[in-house]
Design a binder for these strands. Sequence first.
DNA 1: AGTTAAAATGGAACAGTGTTCCATTTTCGG
DNA 2: CCGAAAATGGAACACTGTTCCATTTTAACT
Lengths: 228, 228
Amino acid sequence: MPRKSKTCPRREESLTRDHIIEVSIELLDSSGEGGLTFRALAERLATGPGALYWHIDNKSDLMTAACDSIVTRAMAESVEGETPKAAIRALALGMFDAIDAHPWVGSALTRALGQQPIVRIVERIGQQVRLLGVPNDHQWAAVSALLHYILGVSGQNAANTQFARTHALNRTDFLEAMANVWSQLDPEEYPFSRSVAGQLRTHDDREDYLAGIDLILAGIDANPSSNE
Amino acid sequence: MPRKSKTCPRREESLTRDHIIEVSIELLDSSGEGGLTFRALAERLATGPGALYWHIDNKSDLMTAACDSIVTRAMAESVEGETPKAAIRALALGMFDAIDAHPWVGSALTRALGQQPIVRIVERIGQQVRLLGVPNDHQWAAVSALLHYILGVSGQNAANTQFARTHALNRTDFLEAMANVWSQLDPEEYPFSRSVAGQLRTHDDREDYLAGIDLILAGIDANPSSNE
DNA sequence: AGTTAAAATGGAACAGTGTTCCATTTTCGG
DNA sequence: CCGAAAATGGAACACTGTTCCATTTTAACT
């Protein structure tokens, strides 16, 4: 690991952990999850793969760092929210949009549990859940439900986006295709999935997502405020 | 793809899609997600990697099939449940235990969205949500919230299990270590995560998980029964 | 300014992966 | 019994993350 030097570095754009992460994000955004390889990264940075390992432990470290960069940005942008519930909604939407813009974050976050990016999110949700007046011993359940819903739906959405991307069709066509498959399922065995296929076709992802958030928030309200 | 032959096949245990999937599950269970390689699989089946491709499209296909096998089994076992809520709880616990026993399913399911295993789960949840009396246009939000919570928590749990396994420590030690990290966070910046670290140390995963399910179920109850 | 140890670099090499290809063997209907 | 189709298994390909190491650049100290 390098330490900061006071004089100017070797060349105009020296190899920096931050710079490597920055280019990694560009690569991930443009070429998807499989687009980030040490070879491609090295080429863009005009160096060899070995040099990268001076600044980065391994690929998992790199992915986590890239995620953290996106999450940090998303959290900074969604600071608004006058009431705790509004703040949670804003935060949830911020994550949704961030993962929608950077689909690879969705799947990567599920492999970075307990690490920095997740802690950031947990903390923000937790503070609002506290303000909501949830008693101490119920806070974790509430935060956990919100966290996993947010990561789950955003991740699914991201997976859809990525699938659509790699198969060169837009989201509408993808949902259309999926709705078609679902609506052709055996009516005896899959009555619900069939009936809901129509909704899939026309639904607004963000709206459904927010509806789910409100559902969980309603549950937090309705839950017995325990022993106080 | 082979078609069923009436006479007995080449050797005692011929290469079958089902048999390949069966051995794949054994391999995944014993050696984790990275343990399933076409080389290892071929060795166990006493054949070459190329032969497998006659029965299986690619690795992703194989993983989805393996997941579907586990999910189908889990759903078949958790048929009990007198009330819709009890049925949902039983189903949720069934998935939790199945993913706990086969951690690789947790991460694999997030990459098999819209496919057979997921549809199976959606259908089962959906039928119970219907019985719960949720109006049509709110059913998808309810199912989606439950589905993503189930997959999210189970997946996190599985990730923890796998991490603990590969680092050769039991779950308690792992949670202990994670709680330690969290409790040493900056009190100014991470007050909630610090305070909740203690709960992490002693909590019962299954209990917290069920608490979250009940939270969402409460939200479904509390939600305005819309325009009817 | 000269010396020296540390920091940083970049390319070659390694072990491993999923997948393809194809010569060969086995199977079974006509 | 034969020939087409099904099935096999191993070699080869392109690619991956990672390690290694000779080399260059930097910064600090006489």
